[in-house]
């Protein structure tokens, strides 16, 4: 593997592509700009002072793709045959996703053009919205896919570890970061998963260990019930329990900083 933009002496140079065969090249890149829910709502309703935000950002992205060679030192000027910019308003995560696709029949790839289009469209979104929200953040700009050319097709793999699906507040599929117990006061961390979470309206909580009448799962259930009557559901029907991710029964002991999860019967596969 070598860097094509460096010559044998390690100096930057523009790759001579005159002898490369022309082929259909396409690249898709994406990124997002995170904003306050109110800002996203204004953007959606067209209520921002600078006017039609998305239309402006789209033109900016297209223009930027065409001028990528002005910005990136060793990029070739390319006669792009297509630049498309799409926006996806993600209300759940309070962000606008920007997706750019560039295409041409030529001798070099177009991923730099797609990345530039996404970047400049995001910058334009910032500019158009900054009057009402200065905390906006641009992130995760990356190539999703490219086709054609010597190095072949590329498809970005979504990271396996990035997003475990579990137990968010509210919507299924959100990620929950487990809380830690304060070392000074022993406690137990309790999680409620899947349908049980939705029915109870709570994803996780911590309970001081000394509020448990007995330091086992049965004692935890009693303490929860004392705290709120809705936890009576833990005693109804089939509710399963795991202590530190191992299946447990009412008699299973609990100690400081244990993670106890309650969940319905499993339905995978």
């Amino acid at each position: 593997m070598s860097l094509t933009h460096l010559n044998q002496r390690g100096e930057a140079h523009m790759v001579d592509v005159a002898d490369k065969a022309e082929s259909r090249r396409e690249a898709t890149a994406s990124g997002f700009i995170q904003m306050k829910p109110e800002t996203l709502a204004l953007l959606n309703e067209g209520g921002l002072p600078k006017g039609d935000v998305l239309a402006t950002a789209r033109i900016a992205g297209i223009q930027a793709a065409k001028r990528t060679h002005d910005l990136i030192p060793l990029c070739h000027a390319l006669p792009l045959s297509k630049v498309a910019i799409d926006f996806h308003l993600d209300e759940a995560n309070c962000r606008v996703e920007v997706i750019a696709t560039c295409r041409l029949n030529g001798r070099t790839g177009v991923e730099m053009e797609a990345l530039t289009a996404v970047s400049v469209a995001c910058l334009t979104l910032y500019d158009m919205c900054k009057a009402v929200d200065k905390d906006m953040e641009i992130g995760a700009i990356h190539v999703d896919a490219k086709r054609g050319g010597k190095s072949g097709d590329y498809q970005r793999q979504t990271s396996v570890t990035a997003a475990p699906i579990v137990t968010g507040e509210g919507a299924a599929g959100e990620v929950s970061v487990g809380s830690r117990c304060d070392t000074d006061s022993p406690c137990v961390r309790v999680k409620f998963l899947a349908e049980l979470r939705e029915r109870l309206g709570v994803s996780e909580l911590t309970l001081p260990l000394d509020t448990l009448p007995s330091t086992d799962v049965g004692g935890l259930k009693s303490a929860l019930l004392k705290r709120d009557a809705r936890f009576a559901r833990l005693g109804e029907g089939r509710v399963l329990c795991a202590v530190n991710q191992v299946m447990a029964l009412d008699a299973t002991p609990i100690t400081n900083d244990d993670e106890v999860a309650f969940f319905p019967p499993v339905t995978g596969g």
């Binding site: 299924a172 969940f263 499993v266 339905t267």
Partner: peptide
Amino acid sequence: RAPFWKKEHSITGDYWVAE
């Protein structure tokens, strides 16, 4: 035995699949 849960989204609404 594996801790997976399915929620189905149908025309008439969302529901958790029963065992």
